[in-house]
């Protein structure tokens, strides 16, 4: 996968000096920057073990969690990460407040900007929502994507990279198998882009054709398998994706039973992977659908570790973006690069 990809378009995430200003997607970020995120995360992992679990990197900053889609887990880790960086945190569950009263997304944004918020952590059901907010936010504000539609969930992707690196020491020569609903998964898209940028040997996708997006090989840089046993053969890492119940209604799958029968990970099937292979899952797990309990609770599972690592990675990303702000990209600093031409007619 080329470093500068024509499909990425203009990169609105970096400031003029190439520092991370927003964290919207893995797409368009290079190996050095992803490695920097992982290295910084390593430093933050220690903070959790200290008696005083706070560092003053974001003191005096206001972080707003803008969650247009419910997610207690992700929101909580972002909140905790911001608090450990000494920021003040606003939690806004927008789905039940502003937009329900007819306020537009931009109006909500302007109101929060008037409260001098420095960072928005955004989760939204629509692909492209974080890009949209970043392209319309005031120049001094940073935006972190906490999941947009099927598009991207970059902090989840990076915490998975962090977990892999801690167990495997690096990425060279690794074979990573991702099992399940790639079509609807923003997590998988972020993982795949990150794995390819970090230079693994091969990323495999294992699923029935209904759950593999069109032209995944070219668009994402993966090898597609429809047979679990073949797909996990000699894999170093197996990532299972969460299967949403509504896929049964949409005609993507006949039943959970058949899915587990063909794609569920069991101890026996795991034997085809490398002896030291690890098993990951972004959570929450459906036991008996994506994997059986023996695997979920087994020695290869690093699922709970992913959760702890999530905190360190989110602290790393937030502190990097705030650090970029402190470099001088304030209200009088560098204007935000335009993501698109969509708003030029209205200027």
């Amino acid at each position: 996968m080329p470093e500068r990809d024509p499909m990425t378009g203009p990169n609105p995430q970096l400031d003029a000096q190439g520092n991370l200003k927003h964290f919207l997607t893995i797409d368009g970020l290079d190996r050095a920057l992803l490695t920097e995120i992982l290295d910084r995360s390593e430093g933050f992992l220690g903070v959790a073990q200290q008696a005083v679990k706070k560092v003053p990197l974001c003191r005096g900053k206001i972080v707003a969690n803008l969650f247009f889609e419910n997610s207690t887990r992700t929101r909580t880790t972002f909140e905790l990460a911001a608090k450990r960086l000494s920021a003040d945190v606003l939690n806004l569950n927008i789905s039940t407040s502003a937009t329900a009263k007819g306020e537009t997304l931009l109006d909500t944004l302007r109101n929060l900007e008037a409260m001098h918020v420095d960072m928005f952590v955004v989760r939204h059901a629509d692909s492209g929502a974080a890009h949209f907010i970043a392209s319309h936010a005031a120049p001094h504000v940073s935006v972190i994507n906490a999941g947009d539609g099927r598009h991207s969930h970059p902090t989840q992707g990076m915490l998975d990279m962090f977990t892999i690196r801690r167990h495997k020491g690096g990425f060279d020569g690794l074979t990573v198998a991702i099992v399940g609903d790639v079509l609807h998964s923003r997590v998988a898209r972020s993982q795949i882009l990150a794995l390819n940028t970090l230079g693994v040997r091969e990323v495999r996708v294992i699923a029935p054709r209904t759950l593999v997006p069109t032209r995944a090989e070219e668009a994402l840089g993966v090898r597609v398998f429809h047979d679990l046993r073949e797909g996990v053969r000699d894999a170093d890492v197996i990532i299972l994706l969460r299967l949403q119940r509504e896929r049964m209604d949409g005609g993507f799958l006949p039943s959970e039973h058949e899915y587990f029968y063909l794609f569920g990970l069991t101890e026996k099937r795991l034997r085809g992977a490398k002896p030291d292979a690890i098993v990951m899952h972004p959570g929450p797990i459906n036991r008996g659908v994506e994997m059986d309990s023996q695997v979920a609770d087994g020695a290869r599972s690093v699922i709970l570790e992913q959760v702890s690592n999530g905190l360190a990675v989110r602290m790393a990303v937030m502190s990097m973006c705030i650090g970029t702000q402190n470099l001088g990209a304030g209200p009088s600093g560098q204007p935000l690069p335009e993501a698109t031409t969509q708003d030029t007619p209205h200027v």
Binding site: M7, D27, S127, G128, D148, G149, R150, H151, S152, R186, R189, P213, T214, R215, A216, E218, A219, L220
Partner: peptide, 15 residues
């Protein structure tokens, strides 16, 4: 369009 860009951008496609 259901193709490279819908897959990469996570946008629902029209085949």
């Amino acid at each position: 369009h259901e193709g490279l860009y819908s897959t990469r951008m996570g946008l629902p496609g029209i085949p």
